[in-house]
Design a protein around this nucleic acid. Structure first.
Lengths: 184, 184
DNA sequence: CCAAGAGGTATACACCTGTAGACTTAGCTC
DNA sequence: GAGCTAAGTCTACAGGTGTATACCTCTTGG
């Protein structure tokens, strides 16, 4: 049995919740399930985080705050995003990405609102900061939409076309798309 | 009370289910709720459709089979898709689109598989048929990903940037993206 | 050494879930 | 008008949901 340690237990719950919410989405995961994975009772979760919704909010905050933007060089940004996107959505890739967390939990309206705030405050902001042209505000938002859509079709839906396609071709086409959106 | 009529009742259940699944997603809707909207008992739903999953499969089939591709002219295809996409995802638009059905139900793996089959057999096929270049098979799949992503961010998440942006600008940028993906 | 408080658990409630089996009732045919 | 069959309903079950209240127990400070 783990020694009593509030901070460590909190962390364990948070990790367990991140894994579960990312794997199955907000609605499909029970508080008891998260608690058990953390070696703890369901009620302790609510004691530390107030409610399932409060826990989710902290998970989102932690997941989105990690810097995911890949380069600071606007010239190679489109190519970098395309490459990382294709790699991370590959059928054999590890499945623990903020976009998965978002897409699997977005159907719940309260979760969606929390996600919107997190995305805008962190991910979208990171992307905007790298771009030189501050007037192109739709660009980052549309780029995130493309990333989200690619995740949906390749991972959630499991499109056979996107699974079969040559990754080099996908990457090249996506790079063109991001170039169009982030340019000017 | 509606006169006894199996065909009409089936139809009523199907309509009610389409509305409910599109509004809330597969997991968030109960069979009782669908039944009640159709003026019927929950058990009748299962009697006609075997199970909730069977009902969902029929709903998806019906929703996807409706031809949604807008023009047969490849020259104006990119512009048409962009225009309709922006219009249908507008904040005040009616919310009954196959993409919403898909995105809200995709977190459930069994629902996702049903959706994948429906998408590929109908929507993706329609789009592919219009294109002249039969070797560009990733194009339609990627275009669907972009459409899905735009729906997610604008409707499910409620991105403030995509809500605030000028619709003409969004449409223009999306047209460029679809042009890149669907060209040659 | 022992009490106080933090860390954690047990029990319970009110409600909802999909669906199986037995039942009732309305409508058409003869 | 009687009777059969299709259309539809009732009851029930086994389990799961989030979370509020009351409780226990380990660790630490005096």
């Amino acid at each position: 049995m783990r020694p009593r340690n509030a901070a460590a237990t909190r962390e364990a719950i948070l990790n367990s919740a991140l894994e579960a919410f990312t794997r199955a989405g907000y609605d499909a995961v029970g508080v008891r399930e998260i608690a058990e994975s953390a070696g703890v009772t369901a009620m302790l979760v609510n004691r530390y985080f107030g409610s399932k919704e409060g826990l989710f909010a902290e998970v989102v905050e932690a997941a989105m705050a990690e810097r995911t933007v890949l380069t600071d060089d606007p010239a190679t940004l489109a190519a970098d995003i395309a490459a990382v996107l294709v790699r991370r959505t590959a059928p054999d890739a590890g499945r623990l990405d903020p976009f998965l967390l978002m897409l699997r939990s977005a159907p719940n309206p309260r979760a969606a609102e929390i996600l919107r705030a997190g995305i805008e405050r962190h991910v979208e902001k990171h992307l905007t900061d790298v771009l030189p042209d501050k007037r192109n505000t739709e660009g980052p938002a549309l780029a995130l939409a493309v990333i989200a859509g690619f995740w949906v079709m390749r991972t959630l839906i499991g499109s056979t076309e996107l699974a079969r396609a040559d990754e080099g071709v996908l990457e090249a086409k996506l790079e063109k798309v991001f170039a169009v959106l982030l340019a000017e």
